[in-house]
Design a protein around this nucleic acid. Structure first.
Length: 275
DNA sequence: CGGTGGACCTGCTGGC
DNA sequence: TGCCAGCAGGTCCACC
């Protein structure tokens, strides 16, 4: 579910509510996530530690602990991370609970269990397999047309697949790849190796624009996504192509089309996206 | 090597 | 009404 704008919104909403708090306990109700939760290790490394910072890298949230370890959390497709008072009873799929004192908790909820929770020593953090191969942040100055053109040299894969590959750029998923390519007027099937400098400039500019706008709207909510306070985002009303197959293009009225690329849906306007 | 397809999960929707 | 296929915002690995 959550791509960069959603994860960043979660980070911003959680930040004032968790930074300065101490993790007083951990309840593990389900250990089978993308990687099995190492319960003893999680307790040993996290309980008693103060959260002094909350960062994001791609779609990963990084809770900085006072013992020079980092709690790494990925939300997969359906993950939620919410700070709330202790509930009377847990909901199904409330898998992990970080207690922040007796009455408040940081709760990890994930229907499909594609998410991930682990604690890593800061000494090894940027060499950890999850983070090691991540490309630059799309909203950073490192993410330029020149960079993407260099990485795509000689490759034949479609530009849409390239954009959602975290090793190229971190944090871009299916929604924002489709939306950025629409905005840039670029055919999602276009082989990346043959895109020139101007093409990449259009793509980078559109990508940044789409991500920034989605951030302002607090992300895109279909069903699962909520921010750290449990509130949905509003970017779904701004989507131009994603999920709109058969409906008229907002720019030219041509029906939006859906196709499969590497097993995933791509939405695009065949008339506006011929670049 | 690069690129795709399937696996991992649960839940919802739409067609019959 | 019920059943079943298809689909969902992500990532990893086997295989061509």
């Amino acid at each position: 579910m959550p791509e960069l704008p959603e994860v960043e919104t979660i980070r911003r909403t959680l930040l004032p509510r968790v930074v300065g708090c101490t993790i007083t306990g951990v309840t593990v109700r389900q250990r089978r996530l993308r990687l099995p939760v190492h319960e003893a290790q999680l307790r040993r490394r996290a309980v008693g530690q103060m959260i002094w910072g909350l960062d994001r890298r791609g779609k990963y949230l990084l809770l900085r602990l006072s013992n020079a370890h980092t709690l790494v959390i990925h939300l997969g497709m359906t993950g939620q991370l919410v700070v709330e008072p202790a509930p009377l009873r847990y909901q199904p799929h409330d898998h992990l609970i970080f207690h922040l004192g007796p009455h408040v908790q940081l709760r990890f909820h994930d229907t499909r269990r594609f998410g991930l929770v682990l604690v890593v020593s800061d000494r090894f953090l940027d060499r950890h397999p999850c983070l090691r191969h991540l490309g630059p942040e799309p909203l950073s100055r490192q993410c330029t047309a020149a960079y993407l053109q260099r990485r795509s040299k000689g490759l034949k894969r479609p530009v849409k697949n390239f954009l959602i590959d975290g090793r190229m750029v971190a944090g871009v998923g299916n929604i924002y790849a489709c939306e950025a390519l629409f905005l840039g007027g670029v055919d999602p099937r276009r082989p990346v190796g043959q895109i020139g400098k101007e093409g990449w400039q259009r793509i980078v500019a559109s990508l940044k624009q789409v991500l920034r706008k989605a951030l302002v709207q607090g992300g895109t909510s279909f069903s699962d996504y909520v921010d750290g306070n449990g509130r949905p985002g509003y970017f779904q009303v701004s989507l131009r192509v994603y999920g709109r197959q058969g409906e008229p293009c907002h720019r030219c009225q041509e029906p939006v089309r859906r196709l499969l690329q590497a097993g995933r849906s791509t939405f695009f306007c065949p008339r506006c996206q011929c670049g």
